[in-house]
Amino acid sequence: MEYTYENLIVEIENKIALVTLNRPQALNALNKNLLEDLSHFFDEALVDDSIRVVILTGSGEKSFVAGADIKEFASFDGKQGEQLAAKGQQDVFDKVEKFTKPVIAAVNGFALGGGLELAMASHFRIASKNAKLGLPEVTLGLIPGYGGTQRLPKLIGKGRAMQAIMTAEMFSADRAYEIGLVNEVVEQTELINRVKEIATKITQNSSVAIRHAITAINASDKEIGFDIEIKSFGNLFDEDDFKEGTTAFVEKRKPNFK
């Protein structure tokens, strides 16, 4: 791959691509450039025969992805907000979910907002003990816009998803394991080795069969919810609560929602 990634480190070994989201100064928050890098990587990896499994992780020991880069969209209106969600889902999150090679999220720390949405779009998740997972968008006067309202209930149940999204509470790694949000919890130092071990097992099986399995499993839960999420996400950009929530975030204070 000759494309130069600004915010990704890609290492390919034994048919496994270890993809590290690399914006450590921003706790690997998803900005426009990082999303473009991810979109490009998945396009390339789809036709790259040297890749049979993809592992996504974050750089450093604190954060997988701490969320979306709020400063990039704090001034957006409703139409721009809707486009942001639709483009992100089309270019990255849906692409990850529908990717015909297995994608495993190695959640090595905070997976919040867009970070948890990226982990949930992956085919399954292994977490380190220090991981914290949650969807805090309502504290910004928003809802999850990259598939969070659709994927979270399918993984942990509707009631738990309602509570998690409404309270913006974070799950510890152990709690995430208890409710089925992650498949395993391991020590931080063991995380990548464990995920590579699982990936190696996968590479020994039929890639054609796995491709069909991914398609069939994904077909079991298709609804129109994503369209509703995108529209609602966009509409919220025109509300005063969004302006107050994002301003408070940037000013590092508590929001005062009317």
Rank of each mutant, 00 (worst) to 15 (best):
residue 179 I to A: 10
residue 183 N to R: 14
residue 95 K to G: 01
residue 210 I to H: 07
residue 16 I to W: 05
residue 85 A to S: 10
residue 244 E to W: 01
residue 70 I to H: 06
residue 256 N to E: 10
residue 1 M to C: 10
residue 172 S to T: 15
residue 107 V to T: 00
residue 104 I to H: 00
residue 168 A to V: 07
residue 251 E to L: 06
residue 179 I to H: 07
residue 198 I to D: 01
residue 89 Q to A: 00
residue 159 G to I: 11
residue 56 L to P: 01
residue 176 A to L: 07
residue 104 I to M: 00
residue 147 G to H: 01
residue 231 K to H: 14
residue 247 T to E: 06
residue 217 I to S: 12
residue 196 K to I: 07
residue 62 K to S: 15
residue 86 A to P: 11
residue 211 R to M: 15
residue 199 A to Q: 02
residue 155 L to K: 13
residue 125 R to T: 14
residue 235 N to L: 06
residue 131 A to Q: 11
residue 178 E to R: 10
residue 51 I to S: 01
residue 106 A to K: 03
residue 189 T to H: 12
residue 53 V to P: 12
residue 17 A to K: 05
residue 175 R to K: 13
residue 86 A to K: 14
residue 158 K to Q: 13
residue 204 Q to P: 05
residue 74 A to D: 08
residue 209 A to Y: 11
residue 69 D to N: 11
residue 55 I to N: 04
residue 54 V to F: 04
residue 32 K to F: 12
residue 227 D to S: 13
residue 228 I to L: 14
residue 103 V to F: 05
residue 10 V to N: 06
residue 176 A to D: 08
residue 206 S to M: 06
residue 63 S to D: 04
residue 8 L to N: 03
residue 166 M to L: 15
residue 213 A to Y: 08
residue 37 D to P: 00
residue 161 A to K: 07
residue 27 L to M: 09
residue 246 T to A: 08
residue 198 I to H: 01
residue 71 K to P: 04
residue 142 L to Q: 13
residue 36 E to T: 11
residue 162 M to R: 15
residue 51 I to H: 06
residue 64 F to W: 05
residue 72 E to I: 00
residue 72 E to A: 00
residue 18 L to E: 11
residue 247 T to M: 14
residue 138 V to N: 13
residue 106 A to C: 01
residue 258 K to M: 08
residue 169 E to S: 10
residue 171 F to M: 13
residue 161 A to S: 14
residue 207 S to Y: 11
residue 221 D to H: 13
residue 26 A to L: 12
residue 179 I to L: 06
residue 19 V to K: 02
residue 118 L to I: 09
residue 61 E to A: 07
residue 141 G to T: 05
residue 75 S to K: 05
residue 80 Q to M: 04
residue 20 T to K: 15
residue 202 I to T: 00
residue 190 E to P: 09
residue 124 F to A: 10
residue 179 I to F: 13
residue 229 E to W: 07
residue 202 I to Y: 08
residue 2 E to L: 09
residue 118 L to R: 11
residue 48 D to Q: 05
residue 78 G to C: 05
residue 110 F to P: 12
residue 256 N to L: 08
residue 87 K to H: 08
residue 166 M to F: 09
residue 113 G to V: 05
residue 92 V to A: 00
residue 120 M to T: 02
residue 122 S to F: 11
residue 158 K to F: 12
residue 200 T to L: 08
residue 85 A to E: 01
residue 257 F to M: 11
residue 173 A to E: 03
residue 126 I to C: 07
residue 53 V to S: 01
residue 230 I to G: 07
residue 61 E to G: 15
residue 94 D to F: 07
residue 224 I to R: 08
residue 83 Q to D: 14
residue 18 L to K: 08
residue 193 N to S: 11
residue 252 K to P: 13
residue 170 M to W: 07
residue 231 K to I: 04
residue 15 K to P: 03
residue 60 G to A: 03
residue 127 A to Q: 04
residue 133 L to K: 14
residue 9 I to A: 13
residue 56 L to F: 10
residue 7 N to F: 04
residue 239 E to D: 13
residue 8 L to D: 03
residue 87 K to N: 13
residue 171 F to C: 12
residue 5 Y to Q: 15
residue 103 V to K: 01
residue 32 K to L: 02
residue 253 R to V: 10
residue 111 A to L: 04
residue 89 Q to C: 13
residue 218 N to I: 04
